[in-house]
């Protein structure tokens, strides 16, 4: 594989898929048609080779996967205003269990990017789907059909904005063992994820039951469906904010907290200024004090007598005369 770096993504995929196919056929002969053991071996094979190949074949430079990732990411960000009601999702987030399921589903779908093996990525999608199913089940008290599931999955994808979504989907499509992807349960959830992404890409006013003007306003950020459905509501909402709209109440609360914060900030600044002034005046006062003390007790250096032993003419008289050599006869 290392000497095939210049191959396109499709050719790489072809190589891996041919390998899967040939190996599966051989194993089928070896195990005499026990498809279960073949599947187990194939899972391990996929795990091994895809862990090794991940770095060179995930989002390869030869494709525009990365560009698509960025496009999808900003698309989802631009759609942040889409509400659960617009998508007609049958999940009631007011129920604590449901909102817990939603949070877990979001975590699961985000976690997909951190896995290397296609099958592990698929498993993340499956976990996410199971969370959605229990959320729908709790809300509606009946098993979820695809009519409920797909909108909910779209909502989760919009909320989660999973990293490198397109790259991950492409990677799974290219390198997952096809028997999993085509018919199994994991494959079904993966297909739904593909549908969700396709829907998000093509989403327009009609698919949310909005008028084109409304859609444009939401997209450009001029209005937000969360606060008010039209500008006219603003005036009314202003008069009794807390009663009319929980979001306005939240907004007001936030404003209060913010103004409290700013006044605290101001007092902090004042304190800081006075501290600065104090610091500046302190050396001066110290200087003054020192000067005062110096004036009070002028510096008197007592003149000390310097003892200079070797100096000439000093008390020479007191000393005994120097010894003179005496000559003895003999």
């Amino acid at each position: 594989m290392s000497n095939k770096k210049d191959l396109g993504a499709d050719e790489l995929s072809e190589c891996v898929q041919d390998f899967y196919q040939n190996l599966a056929d051989r194993l089928m002969g070896h195990f005499k048609g026990s498809s279960e053991s073949v599947e187990q071996v194939m899972d391990q094979v996929e795990k091994y080779i895809m862990t090794r190949l991940y770095k060179s074949v995930f989002c390869p430079e030869t494709t525009d996967d990365e560009k698509k990732d960025l496009a999808t990411q900003s698309r989802i960000r631009a759609l942040h205003w889409v509400t659960i009601q617009m998508l007609c999702v049958s999940m009631d987030e007011e129920i604590p269990e449901v909102s817990e399921n939603v949070v877990k589903a979001i975590t699961d779908i985000i976690e997909m990017d951190s896995k290397r093996v296609p099958r592990d990525k698929l498993r993340c999608i499956t976990h996410c789907s199971k969370q959605i199913f229990s959320a729908i089940r709790t809300t509606k008290n009946e098993p979820a059909s695809a009519d409920d599931f797909l909108p909910a999955l779209i909502y989760i994808v919009l909320k989660a904005n999973p990293p490198r979504l397109q790259s991950n989907i492409q990677y799974i499509t290219r390198f997952c063992n096809p028997s999993r992807l085509m018919s199994g349960e994991d494959g079904y959830y993966f297909t739904n994820l593909c549908c969700a992404v396709a829907f998000i890409e093509k989403l327009d006013a009609q698919s949310l039951n909005l008028s084109p003007e409304e859609f444009e306003r939401y997209m450009s950020g001029q209005a937000s469906p969360r606060c008010s459905s039209s500008e006219g509501d603003w005036a009314r909402a202003d008069q009794a904010p807390a009663a009319t709209n929980p979001f306005l109440a939240q907004l007001n609360h936030n404003l209060e907290v913010l103004s409290g914060l700013s006044s605290r900030q101001e007092s902090l600044m004042e304190a800081a200024h006075s501290l600065q002034a104090d610091l500046l005046s302190w050396p001066q006062s110290v200087q003054r004090e020192v000067n005062g003390i110096l004036e009070k007790y002028p510096l008197e250096v007592p003149s000390r007598t310097v003892s200079a032993i070797d100096a000439n003419n000093v008390d020479n008289d007191n000393l005994p005369p120097p010894l003179t050599p005496q000559v003895f006869a003999g």
């Binding site: 229990s134 979820a144 695809a146 079904y188």
Partner: peptide, 26 residues
């Protein structure tokens, strides 16, 4: 939990059949 992906195992004239039923959003 859900009725969107269901499977059924059948035995038709001695052959095993795994049926996977994919519900679609309508």
């Amino acid at each position: 939990l859900q009725a969107s992906f269901l499977t059924k195992k059948l035995n038709i004239t001695g052959k095993r059949v795994n049926l996977a039923i994919w519900d679609t959003a309508g």
